[in-house]
Design a binder for these strands. Structure first.
Lengths: 223, 223
DNA sequence: CTCTATTATTGAACATGTTCAAAATAGCAT
DNA sequence: ATGCTATTTTGAACATGTTCAATAATAGAG
């Protein structure tokens, strides 16, 4: 009985999460009140706070859930792609595909991007785990891409690609063009640029430039 | 009597603004309540909202005020500096100097950086004016710097520098190192990088790279 | 099975940004 | 001055995220 059914507690938590995501998707994050969430889940207001410490934490729970799925999808799709551009694009495609139905409320998370003190910021201590798992996938995309990455750049490149991804997701989030066409254009053009930069960076001539860039990167991320 | 004293209305507005900024500086933005602001200004709560449409609008009013001062300070200091790095640094120094006493609450504005729908975001429609005035000063810094900027890059470079500045300010905002030492290091290193990039960008060989970068920039800013 | 401690649930109370209708005041034309 | 309008001022009421003390349900020990 324990192994088959989720515990009652888990089930309640799940009901609250579903109710919330359902309402968020329908009406958006700001337009949905915690009282509505509780009502739709069939619990009292206080229960919602027993399971989720804040409204935004619910979105965070969604994000954890989504990441598991995305990691799986990427692990499956990546080996089929050869070139670096194709491999990076695969990651981005999976992300956008999973985020698409949730555009209306994901903004609630991304709005705090710039505030590392906010637990929901992609740069916060609390989201470090998500961040690192994400970066690991970029490392994987680089691995068998056939592109030689200079040794001094290797440790930082996955993080740089992660930031690049964040920029694109942010742009997509606020892209009001039909079907986010503009994001598609940007993804394509910026991927070209990024891939070129990575390839160029390997040229012997580029050593000093790389050094300067890495100096800056390290200054930003705290030595 | 009208020309000498500010109108009564202006005076009240000013009193509310001062009270608010005083409290913000002392206690921080979030810790200060609108009721406290009203009390300190000697008006009813409703009056604060008669003059400022929201709590955050007050910070915005500060920003407008500050920008006037900063523009003046930069206009005065810029002609004394010759090289591009020195000229850019002058702008940044003025900014940091003016922001320093307000670190505690400026974060309230910057936290919304990533949300262009928020009126207070540096990327919002509402802050366009501030943004453009700011970019104009970077254009000025480039003018007599002795650095030749390629024609195709010229229209976008001030905006790129503005974004560079935003990044630095954001970093400074959340830099917890004593005296924001780390920001100082970052400013120095990244200025070197930026200046090198601008100089390099002029080389004939760089034409295709410039094109790609500009393509990306235009994709971002909406053609 | 009974008692006890842990877990879950409840809804009222709170804090605070914001709105708004009513009241006070000021400006001004007649 | 008298009345009329626009501006300013007020504080109560509202909405909503969040807290919390009280209560109920559950599980585990004996």
């Amino acid at each position: 009985m324990r192994a088959v059914n989720k515990s009652k507690s888990e089930e309640t938590r799940g009901r609250i999460l579903s109710a919330a995501l359902h309402l968020f998707r329908e009406r958006g994050f700001d337009q949905t009140t915690m009282r509505e969430v509780a009502k739709e889940a069939g619990v009292a207001l206080g229960s919602a706070y027993y399971y989720f410490e804040s409204k935004e934490t619910i979105v965070m729970a969604f994000y954890h859930q989504a990441q598991d799925k995305m990691v799986a999808a990427i692990d499956e799709a990546l080996p089929k792609q050869k070139g670096l551009k194709a491999r990076l694009r695969t990651i981005l495609d999976v992300k956008f595909e999973h985020f698409e139905p949730n555009r209306k409320f994901l903004g609630a998370l991304l709005a705090h991007t710039a505030d590392p003190k906010n637990p929901l910021s992609p740069f916060s201590e609390e989201t470090r785990d998500l961040r690192e798992k994400d970066a690991a996938q970029f490392a994987m995309a680089l691995e068998n891409s056939g592109v030689k990455v200079p040794d001094d750049l290797k440790p930082d490149l996955p993080n740089l690609l992660w930031m690049f991804q964040m920029g694109l997701i942010l742009f997509w989030m606020y892209d009001r063009s039909p079907g986010q066409k503009r994001t598609a254009v940007l993804v394509d053009k910026s991927l070209d640029l990024v891939v070129s930069l990575i390839k160029f960076s390997g040229l012997p001539l580029m050593k000093p430039v790389r050094r300067t860039v890495l100096d800056v990167v390290h200054a930003v991320s705290g030595d």
